[in-house]
Design a protein around this nucleic acid. Structure first.
Lengths: 235, 235
DNA sequence: CCCTTTTCACCTAGGTGGTAAGAT
DNA sequence: ATCTTACCACCTAGGTGAAAAGGG
C-alpha cells in the first residue's frame, strides 16, 4: 500500500510535509489481514523473584540471558522517500487500540466475537528505531525495518518493549520526526512530524494462536518456523 | 591499562581534552601480548567471477550471503569517561604499522624473525563505531565494544573492512571525535579529537595461526571456539 | 471452560580453528 | 618451503510454534 496521512493537515514543516512511506511486504500483510492477523505477546522477560510463583526450581539461579519476548511477523518495514537528505530524523512506532472491546475466538464458527469492554489500557509506549537519529539520506537509502520491536503483555515490563492487552485489536502507527535544531523547537513540535498507518497491518494480540489458518500462514512464511513445515509447496 | 595520549598536546577542545578511555579485558590482552598476539585476516568476502580461478563449480551460482571475514579476538572494548554528556561524539578505530618490516615465523625457535622490508602499505581505512554519532552520556553509560570490526587482507575489499598485510605488525588506535556544530568546524578539526593507543593490543596479522600457544589461548578464551576445547580446566 | 505460561525441538544466522588442497 | 584458500564440524545466540502444564 501507499502512504497514510498525518493527523490534521495544518502547516507541517517542509522537512516532513513531502515525506512518503511505502509498506514493504504488502502482499503478505494483506494475506494475513484477510484471515485476521494475530500477533503473539508473552510475559516472561527478565526473571525477578516476585514473579516466581510456581517457579521454585529457578529461584536463586542466574537470570536467563535470552529474552523470550516476541517480535512481530510479518515485520513492519517501510521504504521512505521525500525526506531532506541532509536533515536529521527520528523514526518510531506506536500501537493504538482499534476499539474499546475485548474479544474471544469462537472455534465452531472460526471467527472473533466481541466479549465485553476492553481491559484497562496498557501503558502507552513508543519504539524508537535503533538507528535514530539519522540523516534523511541514510533512511531513504534502503528499507527501514522494525525487526527489533518486541511485544509483551506484561504491564510492569521494564525492558522498554511495547505493552499490549491480549485479546484486543491494535493498529500499528509509524512516525517520521524531524529533529528541529532551533532553540525553541518544542514550540514547533506539532509541525515537525508526519504519521502513517496502514490498515492492512492491524492485528489481534494473543498469547496463543487461535485461528489455525493464521498458524499455517506463519509457518509457511516465517523462516524461523521452517521446522514446522510439512512438504515444500513453494520453495 | 589506563589511557594513552593524544598526538601533540596543543590546545584541545574542552569537549575532548578530559576524555579518558580504560581498556577492557586488559588481563586477557596482556596474556596474549606476552605470547605475541596474532589476528586472522581473510580474503573471501563477496565472491566475484574474476576470483574463481579454481572454483568452477561455483561459477554462475548465487553469491554467498555470509561474510567469512574475521573479527578481532580479544575484542577491542573501552570504558569511557570525561566526555560532555550532552555533546555529540563519533568513535572510530584505525590501525598503524608498527614498523617497516615483513615477518616470518621460525617454528624451530618458536619466534618471529624479520624477513625483509614491508610490503606496499594497505589502503588506510578507519572503522566508525556503528552507534556513531551519539551523546557523551550514551557512550559513557556502558562499555563500548568494537565487535563489528572485521579484518581482511583483500587490497580491493569493497565491504568497508579494515585492510591489513599478513605477516606485518599493527597497533590499533582508538579516536574520540567531538562533532563540532560550528559552521567552520573544519578549521578546528585538529582540536576536536583525542586518540588512545594501548601497547598491549598490538598484534601480527596472519592468515593462519603460527604460534600454537596463541591458538590454544584463543580456543580457551573465545566462546565461539568452545568446540575445540578438550577438558574443562577453568569453567 | 477459556486463556496463559513454561519448556522443548528445530530452525536461522553467523563466529571458531582444523584440515587438506592450492598457489607461488 | 612458505603462505593462502576453501570447506567443514562445532559452537554461540536467538527466533519459531507445539505440547503440556498452570490458573481462574
Amino acid at each position: 500500500g501507499w502512504a497514510g496521512e498525518g493527523p490534521g493537515a495544518g502547516g507541517k514543516n517542509r522537512r516532513v510535509c513531502h515525506a512518503t512511506a511505502r509498506l514493504e511486504m504488502g502482499n503478505l500483510w494483506e494475506e494475513f489481514n484477510r484471515l485476521g492477523t494475530e500477533m503473539i505477546v508473552t510475559k516472561a522477560g527478565r526473571w525477578v523473584p516476585e514473579w516466581g510463583r510456581g517457579c521454585a526450581k529457578r529461584r536463586g539461579q542466574p537470570l536467563p540471558t535470552k529474552s523470550p519476548h516476541r517480535r512481530m511477523f510479518p515485520t513492519f518495514q517501510v521504504k521512505l522517500s521525500g525526506l531532506d537528505p541532509l536533515a536529521d530524523y527520528v523514526l518510531l512506532m506506536d500501537f493504538i487500540p482499534l476499539d474499546d472491546k475485548r474479544y474471544r475466538y469462537a472455534f465452531h464458527s472460526s471467527s472473533w466475537l466481541a466479549a465485553g469492554r476492553a481491559d484497562p489500557a496498557a501503558p502507552g509506549r513508543v519504539h524508537f528505531h535503533p538507528d535514530s537519529p539519522a540523516k534523511g539520506a541514510q533512511w531513504m537509502r534502503q528499507i527501514v525495518s522494525f525487526d527489533k520491536l518486541k511485544l509483551t503483555n506484561n504491564l510492569l515490563d521494564d525492558n522498554g518493549h511495547i505493552i499490549l492487552n491480549s485479546m484486543h485489536r491494535y493498529q500499528p502507527r509509524f512516525h517520521v520526526v524531524f529533529v528541529d535544531p532551533r532553540r525553541d523547537s518544542e514550540r514547533f513540535a506539532h509541525q515537525n512530524f508526519k504519521s502513517f498507518s496502514f490498515p492492512e497491518t492491524q492485528f489481534m494480540a494473543v498469547t496463543a494462536y487461535q485461528n489455525h489458518r493464521i498458524t499455517q500462514l506463519k509457518i509457511a512464511s516465517n523462516p524461523f518456523a521452517k521446522g514446522f513445515r510439512d512438504g515444500d509447496p513453494e520453495p
